[in-house]
Design a protein around this nucleic acid. Structure first.
Length: 691
DNA sequence: ATGGGGCTGCTTTTT
DNA sequence: GCAGCCCCAT
């Protein structure tokens, strides 16, 4: 056998735990690659192995040059086993490697921190901790925030910018609408926020929006609000989530040398869940990949369920047109579910038009048929689920944690929670209120933020009278107005309260409070963040306030204790990771803003899981109940009018069905109490489509 | 400036 | 059904 043959055999053996399509994806290193990865097809495994291949062997598999090889190495190539040890891998790499990629030249982008963490962990296992952690695996937002921390001064913001989540940004938006003297009823914050966010997702800035709005009364006003909102964000030295992407694109377009720098740094780019990218993210990736054109995107158009937040399936659908020499690979073997479940899911999704046809298959056997259950009302639905859980626990020896109930809307969890409690069935609602959304946590974080960025007007307004200091809304509005007009920070305005006529009556309390902030800032110079929180709690009277608040006060103090634990953990983790950035308060706050993980849930707890289908994406469970399969619920009432929306709902149904490994139940009720009213629904159109 | 009572409105969610 | 928000009374 010649060298090329031996080399390929050896590499195929090294990756023999993958199927042929997965291996093709792993070996295709250069140029544009589209990996259409069906549900449960081992997508993350492919990503991890592809990165490992790039680092260890580079383009060895497809390279056709024949180097001089000594007999000993040739013999090794012919003999190296399929359970290659790390030593064997090194030697194989020494012999065959061609154009290997340095780990830090790889940018792997995901949507969630969870996905980024999983990628990092599996890379560390496969490549060793050191090499694994050198790969840049992060979310769109943290990758961009990292870049902006270095470069944002080019756009006129300060490097200590704060990141506003949707609650912060809605507060700011509300103040803009009110100050522009608009009727809040006619321009509800949620609506305006949605419109502006949609615009930002499409890279439409306030000037472009104003131009497009000409002649449309509502949009003309929204354009004014948008403009004011951006002005205030900048004054507060803050970016909202959408800005993080949009400003990075703006930076790259304005400063070609900066783009050049990052293009040279990230020579290989991988994007996970590509079907969920929006226009801004698409543009960002295009800009970064334009120079070397090594772009690999992974996704499944059938699992695109985030259209409502700007995701455009078109990005994945048109990828092959965009990159003419693109290699497309389909992963259709499913390692998760029984065939009967997949057959049902395939048959439902086949009703969608304009998709990249895929047919999932499994060699795990047929398994049971999907169980369809018509019930009278939501009460009967819960009884059905409880009965089946009891039955299967006995007959199949399953644990509570093997069961999951999936629903379309959070409001549907209520009926299950009540009945599960009544019957003593342990359950856990996954998702919902997050730790960092709690009032007390947001308040303490607002204090911390102000010590880093005293221009942050939203956080200032949040806590300046919390606990009560007799500084009411009228005074706060006045401070903010002066601050905006003079370009001073609100705290600076308070310091100089004596000098502003409208504030003179309140001057005493204002200067005192400003002095308190100054002392805290001095304290922060030398104290650890945990000590700083204790000092804030004591000095501001926040602790006193909670102490006086009985039960809720105790819980809230406990939560703040939890926050302190999180900070210590962050500091330890950052020290351990030998990252180039040392731990800091700023770093922690960014971490909180971009990594607001949900409630820590003990994975071991033996409980039935309740969650929305959106939350379940990417997860798998032995037994799944999809409940409320009724027109008006699923597909949702609001989607019924638009075929495109119903298609998205159908994809959602597909995601739900493909979560199940062993058994799948689908139920629908004739009558259902929702939002305090009884409604009568027909079975969902999707029910009939699954056979 | 603050607290209480009525009214609305309400998919899906991550960053 | 209920939470959050607005307005009004104190």
């Amino acid at each position: 056998m010649d060298y090329l043959q031996l080399k390929r055999n050896a590499l195929e053996k090294y990756f023999s735990h993958l199927n042929p399509q997965q291996r093709q994806a792993v070996f295709t290193v250069n140029g544009a690659v589209l990996i259409l990865a069906g549900a449960g097809s081992g997508k993350t495994t492919v990503l991890v192995n592809r990165i490992a291949n790039m680092i260890l062997f580079g383009n060895a598999y497809n390279d056709t040059t024949e180097p001089d090889i000594n007999d000993e190495d040739m013999a090794f190539l012919g003999s190296c086993g399929d359970t290659a040890s790390e030593e064997d891998a090194r030697r194989l790499s020494d012999i065959v490697a061609v154009d290997t990629v340095r780990p830090w030249s790889i940018l792997a982008i995901t949507f969630t921190n969870k996905a980024a963490d999983e990628l990092k962990n599996r890379l560390a296992v496969m490549l060793g901790d050191e090499c694994g952690s050198e790969v840049h695996a992060s979310t769109f937002h943290s990758a961009c925030a990292r870049i902006l921390r270095r470069e944002i001064e080019l756009l006129g913001y300060g490097r200590a910018f704060t990141i506003y989540d949707s609650d912060d940004s809605k507060r700011l938006l509300k103040s803009c609408i009110e100050d522009l003297d608009q009727n809040i009823r006619e321009f509800p914050v949620n609506y305006v926020s949605y419109v502006i966010s949609q615009a930002k997702d499409k890279l439409i800035d306030e000037d472009m929006f104003a131009e497009d709005a000409q002649g449309d009364y509502r949009n003309e006003i929204i354009a004014k609000v948008y403009c004011e909102y951006q002005k205030r964000l900048k004054a507060a030295n803050a970016l909202d989530f959408d800005d993080i992407i949009m400003k990075t694109v703006e930076l790259f377009e304005k400063a070609p040398d900066v783009l050049e720098h990052y293009s040279n740094l990230y020579k290989y780019i991988l994007v996970d869940e590509y079907q969920d990218t929006n226009t801004a993210q698409y543009r960002l990736v295009s800009l970064l990949a334009a120079k070397y054109k090594n772009l690999c995107v992974v996704g499944d158009d059938d699992q695109s369920i985030y259209r409502f937040r700007g995701a455009t399936v078109e990005n994945i659908l048109s990828f092959e047109d965009e990159f003419a020499d693109c290699t497309t690979i389909r992963l259709e073997q499913n390692y998760r579910s029984r065939q009967n479940i997949l057959t049902g899911a395939n048959s439902v999704i086949a009703h969608n038009k304009g998709r990249k046809a895929k047919t999932l298959w499994s060699d795990r056997g047929d398994g049971d048929k999907i169980t369809l259950c018509a019930v009278g009302d939501e009460r009967e639905e819960t009884e059905l689920v409880i009965r089946e859980i009891g039955r299967l626990r006995k007959s199949m020896d399953l644990k509570y944690s093997d069961f999951t109930v999936l629903y379309r809307m959070n409001a549907q969890s209520n009926a299950f929670e009540r009945r599960f409690s009544a019957k003593g069935i342990p359950y856990k609602v996954v998702g919902g209120l997050r730790f960092y959304d709690r009032k007390e946590i947001r308040d303490i974080l607002a204090y911390l933020t102000l010590l880093v960025n005293e221009y942050d007007m939203v956080r200032f307004s949040r806590i300046i009278n919390e606990p009560k200091r007799n500084i009411g809304t009228a005074t706060v509005d006045m401070i903010n107005e002066i601050s905006l007009n003079l370009g001073m920070s609100p705290i600076e305005v308070m310091r100089q309260a004596e000098g502003f006529a409208p504030l003179q009556r309140k001057a005493k309390v204002l200067t005192e409070t400003a002095a308190m902030f100054d002392r805290l800032r001095d304290y922060a110079e030398t104290a650890s963040p945990v000590e700083l929180i204790d000092e804030i709690m004591a000095v501001t009277g926040y602790k006193k306030m909670l102490d006086a608040d009985g039960e809720t006060g105790i819980t809230r103090l406990e939560n703040i204790g939890e926050l302190k634990t999180n900070i210590s953990q962050y500091i330890n983790d950052t020290l351990d990771s030998e990252d180039d950035t040392p731990p800091s308060l700023e770093g922690f706050l960014e971490n909180v803003a971009l990594y607001a993980e949900g409630e820590q849930q003990d994975e071991d707890a033996d409980s039935v899981k309740l969650m929305t289908i959106h939350t379940a994406k990417g997860l798998e469970f032995p037994v799944v109940f999809i409940v409320g399969m009724e027109n008006g619920i699923f597909p949702s009432e609001r989607s019924l009018a638009s075929p495109a929306d119903v298609e998205e709902e159908r994809r959602l149904a597909y995601v739900a069905m493909t979560r199940a490994k062993e058994k799948l139940y689908i139920s629908y009720a004739e009558e259902r109490m929702l939002f305090g009213r009884t409604q009568y629904n027909q079975e969902s159109v999707f029910v009939g489509e699954n056979t």
